[in-house]
Design a protein around this nucleic acid. Structure first.
Lengths: 218, 218
DNA sequence: TGTACATCAGTGAACGCGCGTTCACTGATGTAC
DNA sequence: TGTACATCAGTGAACGCGCGTTCACTGATGTAC
């Protein structure tokens, strides 16, 4: 009964931290938000977590590994967000595909630091972190599967789903990047504005700019 | 006649460098290609340019200003590439708009270091560099003008061109980012593969995924 | 054409700094008996 | 329930390093006369 004693949640109520690993990734996100991915240092993260600068080495072999953990977490969380979005979208394959894209953008904008680490150039060699690569692949797979479903339903022309996934992924990825970088000004409330932009973009890619905003036809 | 004596091009044929400013931005690009934007240091750039580490301060007030110069140069070059692409596309406004997008992607993929600096988070506050902001705006303006032309020709529905520009910019920006980060594998030769992807993506945004790859109808 | 002089673009030494990483250590935890 | 002991997760001092930036300087350049 005393075996799975709950880890202490209060900060430093004992010699041991309790959940330093998580505290470090939180601190990293805070630092990245303020100074960009290159502005994150192990020492400052340790400081913010209230431990010595050597303590992180009990949880991560080095600085890059912590960043990789943040990126991996981002992909996993994004995948969950996307699955939730799909669930809300109902049964229509096309609607589900669109929801996937919208959720992608919304996650990125809500978690810009994660997004920057996930797709920034800070982690040079992602293959060095197999779990990170796997998390990224699993997220991308959602897109491929959804396209597959649309094809099966005859809503999208046949062809390799990976191929069709590229334009779709591009548009949501690009929109996310532009918004996160502040290149696309947003109306307030921001959340709603982002979703509107994402819906517009995914509709455009699906139905074509030529038609999407057409005046109600005669 | 001796007034505009040509700058010496040979490396260090005299005490003065000749074109240190340019040598520094070249070195910066090389460093960024190898180590990412955060891996660029003034001292290493100076070393590669064959001057002392203090020499760069004759041309740039600090490290960030050199990066900003690289980004500005990138926007200017990209704009030129895009204009060239448009020229080749002929008179049809829709074809010209598409060519603009394709040129955007091709430039990014051909100059990944420029692209990373232009849109990375390394230069935190772009407003601090008015010339950079102006160069970026001028590039974006090409897109807006091309959309305007399409609208005037009735090829795209009415509406604020800036609004329509966002999905289009998103898709080319996203594709560029994914390719530059190696997320989209490319067949060889790379140049042709990139262009094919860009054509596919811009066609998709224009005509809609629903239709674009449809089997030859009945 | 020659000379004096201002300006420019480098040099090289020095500054303080914070970083990543290592190490021997110690206090806390949890488990076997 | 109590005790001995292995393991775990911290500490704090120390390492070497390269960085950005400043400064007084000097050699090179170009211009006025």
């Amino acid at each position: 009964m005393t075996r799975a004693r709950p880890r202490p949640l209060r900060r430093r109520d004992s010699y041991h931290h309790g959940d330093l690993r998580r505290a470090l990734t939180r601190a990293a996100l805070r630092l990245i938000a303020r100074h960009g991915p290159s502005g994150f240092t192990l020492r400052e993260a340790a400081r913010q977590a209230g431990v010595t600068h050597a303590a992180p080495y009990r949880h991560f072999p080095n600085r890059m590994a912590l960043l990789a953990a943040v990126a991996e977490e981002g992909f996993a969380e994004m995948r969950v967000s996307m699955l939730a979005g799909v669930d809300r979208a109902g049964a229509d394959p096309a609607a589900r595909l669109q929801a996937l894209g919208v959720a992608y953008v919304c996650y990125a904008v809500a978690h810009p630091s994660h997004f920057r680490v996930m797709f920034g150039s800070e982690i040079a060699d992602k293959c060095a972190y197999p779990e990170l690569a796997a998390a990224a692949a699993a997220t991308f797979q959602l897109l491929v599967d959804a396209i597959d479903a649309c094809q099966a339903a005859g809503q999208i022309p046949k062809g390799p789903p990976e191929d069709l996934a590229v334009p779709l992924w591009s548009i949501v990825h690009g929109l996310a990047g532009l918004v996160v970088d502040g290149q696309v000004p947003l109306a307030t409330p921001k959340g709603a504005a982002v979703e509107a932009r994402a819906v517009q973009a995914t509709t455009a890619i699906f139905d074509g700019l030529r038609f999407v905003q057409r005046e109600p036809a005669m």
